[in-house]
């Protein structure tokens, strides 16, 4: 079908984006002060001279810039993102090992934010200008203005330090040796606060978008048509307006995917969540630029993937989209 051919085009257009990130990375390395080899080895100069020399050869740093560029791209496409001297492990391995927890955190925050944001947005729009709308709107405004990391710290103060309901940090309690179902519950308990801290901002955002979108649909001609057919208000809302109003939320979700990763870096740092965010923070502390660039590359690929999923959902929901 033509609509899915459009998806094929989007897939094709994802490749230049990935390529573009590599180009950007290459320029960032050259932008950094000092010798590229020492930059790649970690700025603090902790790398041994042998290792620096190895890098020099591998990236052809004594050869012309254009050749260096192609070597860099070729290495990256082989998924060779270099070696982290600090962590004594290949960058790609380090990132892959941490990808799972980050994905779990992001997906949980993302899906909860979309689901509840949509729901609250509809509730606010239905009860427009009532006290319920006012409460939702004020709460939304506050969540929308709260810095993610501070919210995380405040949650710790309240729920861990004072109430002692939830664990402060980490992915699970390894010391307890939980297995199966119990382990799942334990991880879930560790997840509550990070997910809340990361998700509340987006929850607020989607609530705002959904509310505005629903109100916009209220004035549409097709709503009057549905009324003229004798359809009930509830069904007009669920059967007609909801899907139309949801499309802008979906678009926004795609746009925000990149920011979600940025948020998870901060949240992981606050809660000691063993994902790529914490990895990035550690790389930041030791100025391990190459590892940071690797994380940037992988997260950007992740965003491209999320965008493709959003695109597929949009195509499934909106028959008008076609190549």
């Amino acid at each position: 079908m033509r609509r899915w051919r459009y998806f094929g085009y989007r897939l094709l257009f994802a490749l230049p984006v990935v390529f573009g990130i590599l180009v950007l990375n290459f320029f960032l390395i050259r932008l950094a002060p000092g010798d590229a080899a020492s930059v790649l080895a970690g700025e603090s100069g902790a790398a041994s001279p042998e290792y620096t020399e190895l890098l020099r050869q591998k990236f052809g740093l004594d050869r012309p810039v254009i050749e260096q560029f192609f070597l860099y791209i070729a290495n990256a496409l082989r998924f060779d993102l270099g070696f982290s001297f600090r962590n004594d492990a290949p960058v790609s391995e380090l990132i892959l090992a941490r990808l799972g927890p980050t994905l779990l955190l992001m997906l949980a925050a993302f899906s909860l934010a979309v689901a509840f944001g949509t729901l609250l947005g509809v509730l606010a729009a239905v009860a427009r200008n009532s006290w319920r709308d006012a409460v939702i709107s004020v709460a939304t405004l506050i969540c929308y203005a709260t810095p993610v990391f501070w919210l995380g710290l405040m949650l710790i103060v309240v729920f861990s330090v004072n109430l002692a309901w939830l664990p402060t940090s980490g992915f699970e309690d390894i010391g307890q040796g939980y297995e199966g179902w119990e382990r799942g519950v334990d991880i879930a308990r560790h997840m509550v606060m990070p997910v809340a801290a990361l998700g509340l901002f987006y929850l607020a955002l989607y609530t705002r978008v959904m509310r505005a979108s629903m109100l916009e649909q209220t004035g549409m001609d097709y709503v009057v048509t549905a009324r003229a057919k004798g359809q009930s208000e509830g069904r007009i809302m669920l059967g007609h307006m909801l899907r139309n109003a949801f499309l802008p939320v979906l678009t926004m979700a795609g746009v925000q995917a990149g920011n979600l990763i940025g948020g998870s870096v901060v949240v992981e740092t606050v809660f000691g969540w063993p994902g790529i965010g914490t990895l990035a923070f550690n790389a930041l502390q030791s100025r391990d630029l190459n590892l940071l660039l690797g994380i940037f590359f992988i997260s950007a690929c992740l965003v491209v993937a999320i965008n493709l999923i959003v695109e597929a959902l949009t195509i499934a929901l909106d028959p008008r989209i076609q190549a």
Partner: peptide, 24 residues
């Protein structure tokens, strides 16, 4: 617009981090 979309897609916060690290 392709360039704009590109910059909208990539994780903004990570790029900002990288830039600050590089520029000190």
């Amino acid at each position: 617009m392709r360039i704009t979309e590109f910059f909208q897609t990539i994780p903004a916060f990570l790029l900002a981090m990288l830039l600050v690290v590089i520029l000190s």
